[in-house]
């Protein structure tokens, strides 16, 4: 084949251009630390990358749901423990007040404490978390218990559920009627305390004695709700842990799909550089001399 100077020149340009393209590719991979910079780099990989990225964002959102739900449940847990100790204290006072030989002064002192327990119980029933009433179901903007007639207040019975993971919702509230009792219940916490106070003042020992039983029955129901909250907290924690594991796995998959192998890319870039350098050197040798240089 007949080879002319221009052919060698063109061929060198073509090859140099290809070398530059290759170096540019490695350069971009190193600068972005990604091997996937546009869909045509890897049409299949880009689909996976998009899927993993969406999953990471969703897991993140579910983790926030879990965190919020957990703090809501923790708040409820604390409040239920308060209600339980208030009832326990009322029980102790009822036991003490049931003694017939007790002086009027002492009974009045006990009655005063029971009244205090009542208002404490109403305050607990009207507790807010994050600006929302905890015990009024979905009517979070409405105060559930009336300070004077808390025993006849009717609360919303609807539950609030948070999505904790795909298709999995968990109830994060406890409605007031389950904790303090329905308005007509004989063991309605507020009604019991009110009656206990009245019986103490009226020296109705039989009434005070019966209060001990109703308080016991209320405490049982509160504890039932309390352990239910505990169980839901456990489940939420479990889901949270699972989300963390899942997150880690997906992040790893995402990184494998998208991230450039930095050491490998550097080695490739160095090789491309070496090729480029030698082709430039060869080019300089080949292009320069012609017969003209030797004709005198």
């Amino acid at each position: 084949m007949r080879v002319t100077q221009n052919m060698m020149n063109a061929q060198m340009m073509y090859n140099l251009n290809r070398n530059n393209t290759r170096m540019d590719k490695y350069q971009e991979m190193l600068a972005t630390s990604k091997k996937l910079n546009k869909p045509s780099d890897d049409p299949v990989g880009v689909g996976y990358a998009m899927r993993y990225e969406a999953q990471v964002a969703r897991i993140d959102q579910y983790k926030r749901n879990v965190n919020d739900g957990t703090s809501h449940l923790e708040m409820t847990d604390t409040l239920l423990s308060q209600v339980n100790s208030l009832l326990q204290r009322a029980n102790e006072l009822a036991v003490r007040g049931a003694t017939e030989s007790m002086s009027i002064d002492a009974r009045e002192a006990i009655a005063a404490e029971v009244r205090h327990l009542y208002s404490q119980m109403v305050t607990t029933g009207n507790s807010q978390f994050n600006g929302r009433y905890v015990f009024n179901g979905q009517k979070t903007d409405v105060q559930p218990y009336d300070l004077i007639n808390a025993e006849s207040s009717v609360t919303d019975t609807a539950t609030i559920n948070y999505m904790m993971s795909e298709g999995d919702s968990i109830q994060i509230n406890v409605t007031g009627n389950l904790v303090f009792g329905e308005s007509a219940d004989p063991d309605n916490a507020f009604a019991v305390l009110k009656k206990l106070e009245a019986d103490l003042l009226a020296n109705n020992t039989a009434g005070v004695n019966s209060a001990i039983n109703t308080l016991d029955s209320r405490m049982n129901k509160v504890q039932q709700q309390w352990s239910d909250v505990g169980a839901r907290m456990n489940r939420t924690e479990l889901i949270g842990n699972r989300l963390e594991d899942f997150d880690l796995n997906v992040q790893k998959l995402l990184s494998q799909t998208v991230d450039a192998d930095i050491p490998g890319t550097i080695v490739n870039l160095k090789m491309a550089e070496a090729v480029q350098r030698s082709s430039l050197e060869v080019g300089a040798r080949v292009i320069q001399p012609t017969l003209i240089d030797f004709l005198r």
């Binding site: 002319t4 063109a10 004709l295």
Partner: peptide, 16 residues
């Protein structure tokens, strides 16, 4: 294009 140049291109060595 290389083949075309091989046929039609000016080779300075050849011309000289």
């Amino acid at each position: 294009e290389n083949m075309r140049q091989s046929v039609s291109g000016v080779s300075l060595d050849e011309e000289m």
